[in-house]
Design a protein around this nucleic acid. Structure first.
Length: 703
DNA sequence: AGCACGCCGACT
DNA sequence: GTCGGCGTGCTC
């Protein structure tokens, strides 16, 4: 089996079609790039002089312009009647047709997430593809095939592989005879990556390709390095949005042509055509980044599972704190759970210390930054030359400025949100629309000079720590300090080189980086997430804290002395009890029970209909009409439609947003309603002047 | 979404 | 007299 198999198959299909000896042009169904709003969502019909295999990329006339399209499988519907069909435009025959399984994946995702097939199909292809003509494309394809055929330089011998732990060996054994998705529940440091590597090794040895999905671009380089080292001589490509357009096309083509053995990428990589697919891995499967948050709002994790089932290949979902969705499926037996509870090298998980901030007396002046015991612990680490991580999930200096005289606060004029005070460059910045202005010297409303920051972000914490820990080398890692190219790597490098004693940062810190010399991790003020309006707040917090705890004591020699500190006003919250015991199953059981009682995922299926307008009343009126349509139409029952409400931040950049929740105990009932209802919504648009956009989010992360 | 067509105010 | 404002409507 090789990648070129798609070509003969396509050609055979074309021959079959031609074999009908149809005279004259034939009708073709084409998935065309038309946005959802255009109501021209489905497949369009064109004619072609010669038969074209489904999956062929081409350009077709649409109105007065030419748009990209893909020859699609027609399905049972006949060509549009009573229309003068137009002939297709340029055919990009240099590209092997996109295979049937890829089209089925796109069909499924388009139907499930309620988007046009063409819109989704074209959105998940490399953007560069639409810029090239057939000759340019043919040249690139030929070059890649030539390079692949050329005898490669001496391949270094693969490195000695580590001996598998008993748990790793057991996990791997289950992968090799997987009959359903595997949920690899392994604590940080238990060696999940080694299981991925060995599973990939098996797939590669069988002549197959492996697809490995990771939540963030930041995490690809180190994983890529490990795969590259393990598989010298194999073709490993990455796919994520930080690649240049040319690189992305090149990597995608290598995968599609069957020339790449390993594809490592972020959520968009789930749509990579892979003729020899033999394994799918989703690392950190609980991570919210797998959910696309604009356009077609697909879950790459869920599509990865679907895709693996479709192709009959193993899929491995790995996490120390699985999503409740995956955990529930494992409990139900729909996924097979594999436990990895031991850290490699026998290191223990750090001791968790919950500090009750509510019983501490207020300091004589200023605010309490760190509990005295935590401060002592930090001093101890400093004295021993060990490193500490302090987590605070809020960047900037202070979340809002306030005038004590008149009550003015630093609101954003364009958003329903506060502008954050950034002391470093003396700016007020809106984190929603990006509006940045210099901090006013005096209150803009009353002229009072005494305007003060309220609350604390990472910038202020860093400043306060500098005062509390004189002489300590304190660095900060957040979206502000890592903005430039290579800044993140540079900062991480400094930490690894031991040039930093205390690292302050947002959740960015907790993700994936191995800090060998860190023996203390502290969450400075995590309480907001406990009582957040986001029903996934506790789940996220638990994952974040467990992940952060995993940063400490990766070096087994230091593990015994490692600690995770949590400062809270609610020390008796069950989340912390579970954290202290490193007991994810207990936490998950409690959360699942709450979700069941509240009718929330994974115990219910949700969809959100969002509407945007300059005037909130317009968006709300549209949603009310939509609700009436849902109630009146015959779309099957079992779905509750809730009244429209504004989201937590209702106005962004002068656009008002309103959303309406749909909830059902049955995913199928919800899907049935959406499928019938959404097409009918197009007709409502004209009635609501000023309505800017509307869109549906199936399986939303937050409501 | 584009990109037209279409019918009303300030410019070379 | 025209350039251009964006309202409305269509795209196999």
């Amino acid at each position: 089996m090789d990648g070129r198999q798609t070509r003969p198959a396509g050609a055979a299909a074309a021959r079959r079609a031609g074999g009908r000896r149809v005279t004259g042009p034939q009708a073709l169904a084409v998935a065309v790039e038309t946005p959802q709003h255009s109501a021209v969502g489905g497949l369009l019909d064109y004619t072609s002089e010669r038969p074209l295999a489904p999956g062929t990329l081409l350009r077709v006339p649409l109105g007065r312009r030419e748009v990209p399209g893909i020859v699609w499988d027609r399905g049972p519907a006949p060509p549009a009647a009573g229309l003068e069909l137009r002939p297709v435009g340029t055919v990009l025959s240099a590209l092997p047709p996109l295979p049937a399984d890829w089209r089925a994946l796109v069909d499924f995702a388009a139907a499930y997430y309620q988007r046009g097939v063409g819109e989704l199909a074209l959105a998940v292809l490399p953007p560069e593809l639409r810029k090239l003509d057939d000759t340019q494309l043919a040249r690139r394809v030929a070059r890649l095939q030539r390079e692949a055929a050329a005898p490669s330089a001496a391949v270094p011998a693969p490195p000695a592989r580590p001996v598998l732990s008993a748990e790793q060996a057991a996990a791997l054994e289950i992968v090799s005879r997987a009959d359903r998705p595997l949920l690899l529940h392994g604590v940080t440091g238990s060696g999940k990556t080694e299981v991925y590597l060995r599973a990939a090794e098996q797939a590669l040895a069988a002549g197959r390709q492996a697809l490995v999905l990771v939540p963030e671009i930041n995490l690809t380089p180190q994983l890529q390095a490990r795969f590259a080292e393990r598989f010298p001589g194999r073709v490993l490509v990455s796919l994520h949005s930080a690649l240049t357009p040319a690189q992305r096309l090149r990597h995608w083509l290598l995968a599609h042509l069957g020339l790449a053995d390993l594809v490592l990428g972020t959520r968009l990589a789930v749509f990579t055509p892979l003729p020899r697919l033999g394994l799918v891995v989703v690392d950190e499967e609980h991570d919210p980044s797998f959910k696309q948050q604009e356009g077609a709002r697909y879950s790459a994790r869920d599509l990865a599972v679907w895709r693996a089932a479709q192709r009959g290949v193993p899929v491995l979902l790995g996490s120390a704190t699985p999503s409740l969705e995956s955990w529930q499926r494992a409990l139900q037996g729909r996924y097979r759970r594999v436990e990895m509870a031991e850290r490699i090298g026998g290191g223990a998980m750090p001791r968790v210390r919950i500090v009750d901030m509510s019983v501490l007396p207020r300091p004589a002046q200023g605010e309490r930054v760190l509990a005295p015991a935590l401060l002592d612990a930090l001093h101890g680490r400093l004295a021993r030359g060990e490193q500490s991580l302090l987590l605070l999930n809020r960047r900037g200096y202070a979340p809002v400025l306030h005038c004590a005289a008149c009550g003015w606060k630093s609101g954003c004029p364009h958003c329903s949100a506060w502008r954050v005070f950034h002391k470093g460059d003396r700016t007020l910045r809106c984190h929603h629309c990006g509006l940045t202005e210099r901090v006013p010297r005096a209150c803009p409303d009353c002229g009072n000079l005494d305007i003060a920051p309220i609350g604390r972000g990472t910038e202020k914490l860093q400043e306060q720590l500098a005062a509390l820990l004189p002489g300590a080398r304190i660095a900060r890692l957040d979206a502000d300090t890592t903005r430039g190219a290579g800044m993140l790597e540079q900062q991480l490098g400094a930490v690894h080189a031991g040039e930093v004693d205390v690292l302050v940062g947002t959740q960015m810190l907790a993700k994936g980086h191995d800090f060998r010399r860190v023996t203390l991790v502290a969450a400075v003020n995590p309480d907001a997430a406990l009582f957040s309006s986001d029903f996934r707040g506790p789940e996220r917090l638990f994952a974040l804290l467990m992940q952060a705890a995993g940063r400490a004591g990766r070096d087994a020699a230091q593990a015994a002395a490692s600690e995770m500190w949590v400062q809270t006003h609610h020390p008796r919250h069950p989340l912390f009890a579970a954290l202290r015991a490193h007991d994810y199953p207990a936490f998950a059981a409690a959360q699942l029970e709450e979700r069941r009682q509240a009718g929330l995922p994974p115990c219910a299926a949700l969809a959100l209909l969002r509407a945007e307008a300059r005037d909130a009343a317009v968006a709300t009126a549209f949603l009310h009409d939509a609700a009436a349509l849902a109630a009146g139409g015959d779309f099957g029952g079992g779905v509750t439609v809730y009244p429209p409400v504004p989201p937590p931040v209702s106005k962004v950049a002068d656009v008002e947003r309103v959303q309406m929740l749909l909830e059902s105990p049955s995913r199928r009932a919800l899907q049935a309603l959406l499928a019938g209802w959404l097409p009918a919504l197009h007709g409502l648009r004209a009635k609501h002047k000023g309505l800017l956009r509307w869109a549906v989010d199936v399986d939303p992360l937050a409501i």
